[in-house]
């Protein structure tokens, strides 16, 4: 394999991982805020929490649509194998996101009726289930799926293993932490203080989860273990645990010294490290342990055409995404009602 047929899938794999990373971070704090409803029963605080994300959640979720579309257009073999294999958690996640998405509007518009509680619950459960499913989907990919003649040939519940449950819970914990640190940055007063407390607990949980997943993953397939112990690659891999710990201590300092943005940035760093660790682990597989990136790629004529569009559009998208975040920057208080 030479030239474009080799390089285009590599470039696309990098773009896809970047899109997933952006999605995880952006929608992660949205979903985390939904889960934090559990510990914040007061409607006025819940309104503030929702108001910090109301103007941007749709854009955040669009990264997920981009992920699906890129997989479909660029790696159709992976799209057509992974989605049937992960049918159950994907459908469950989509249904959860339906509740979550409409709850933004519905919980305010039903304010004076008994349905109000239902939509708050929908927001909370929708966020929690979606987060869990995303972890399980990730685990499903890492575990690998059985493939015959290029198509999925396993059973509907193959994905459900102790490892996928662990990953589901880890992602829930991680998103809740992202949400809490986002709120530290964007809110004031007792809500901010409560979030500082909660984020300590959640950070402890996430730290344990990262260690557990990191130790478990290499045991799943022999090539994974090799990836982490092979010589030149070791150079890139070795600093990862050190960085995780370093970010952890910066996080603690940020919380104690009442920094408002540092904790959020540290958690972003953790997520970045975890995702790059996973990407290194499964590289160059798209559907472990059988199909590589090149096995599932669409022809170069598709990948190239789409790359041209992406190269032009993605920077523009980033610019106006930043613009819309800037319009709604600053602390949100109970006096700011967006509705």
């Amino acid at each position: 394999m030479t030239g474009l047929a080799y390089w285009l899938p590599v470039v696309w794999a990098i773009i896809l991982v970047a899109a997933i990373a952006i999605y995880v971070v952006l929608d992660g704090f949205d979903l985390g805020i939904g889960m934090l409803f559990v510990v914040v029963p007061e409607t006025r605080y819940r309104d503030v929490m929702v108001n910090t994300i109301a103007p941007v959640w749709d854009g955040n979720e669009t990264w997920m649509v981009l992920g699906g579309a890129v997989l479909y257009g660029v790696f159709p073999g992976a799209y057509a194998t992974l989605l049937p294999a992960l049918y159950v958690p994907i459908v469950l996640m989509l249904l959860a996101l339906v509740f979550r998405g409409v709850a933004f509007e519905f919980r305010v518009l039903t304010r004076t009726t008994i349905w109000h509680r239902l939509w708050d619950l929908g927001f909370m459960l929708g966020s929690a289930i979606a987060a869990f499913c995303q972890g399980a989907i990730l685990a499903g990919v890492i575990q690998g799926v059985p493939v015959t003649d290029g198509a999925f040939s396993g059973k509907a519940l193959d994905w459900l293993t102790p490892f996928s449950v662990l990953c589901g819970l880890s992602v829930m914990c991680g998103y809740a932490l992202l949400g809490a640190t986002w709120l530290i940055w964007r809110t004031t007063g007792s809500l901010e203080q409560a979030c500082r407390l909660w984020s300590m607990v959640l950070a402890g949980g996430l730290f344990i989860a990262i260690v557990a997943v990191s130790l478990w993953t290499p045991m799943l397939h022999a090539p994974y273990l090799k990836r982490w112990t092979d010589w030149p690659r070791m150079i890139f891999v070795a600093p990862v645990p050190i960085l995780v710990v370093a970010l952890g201590s910066a996080f603690l300092r940020g919380i104690r010294q009442a920094h408002s943005l540092t904790p959020f940035l540290c958690v972003l760093g953790w997520f970045f490290l975890c995702l790059s660790g996973l990407a290194i682990t499964i590289w160059p597989y798209a559907v472990p342990p059988n199909l590589s990136l090149w096995d599932v790629s669409s022809p170069p004529s598709s990948q190239l055409f789409q790359l041209v569009g992406t190269a032009i559009m993605l920077p523009i998208v980033l610019v106006y995404t930043v613009f819309s975040y800037r319009v709604f920057r600053g602390k949100v208080t109970e006096a700011d009602a967006y509705h």
Binding site: P55, T62, Y72, G73, P76, L83, G309
Partner: peptide, 28 residues
């Protein structure tokens, strides 16, 4: 999807990049 994805998937991606992001970015 496996057979037609190289065409329909690419069109959908263009839709996401040129339309969905635009809508979502300015909706707020």
């Amino acid at each position: 999807s496996r057979k037609a994805g190289p065409i329909t998937g690419v069109l959908l991606s263009y839709e996401v990049m040129t339309a969905f992001f635009l809508e979502a970015g300015f909706l707020g």
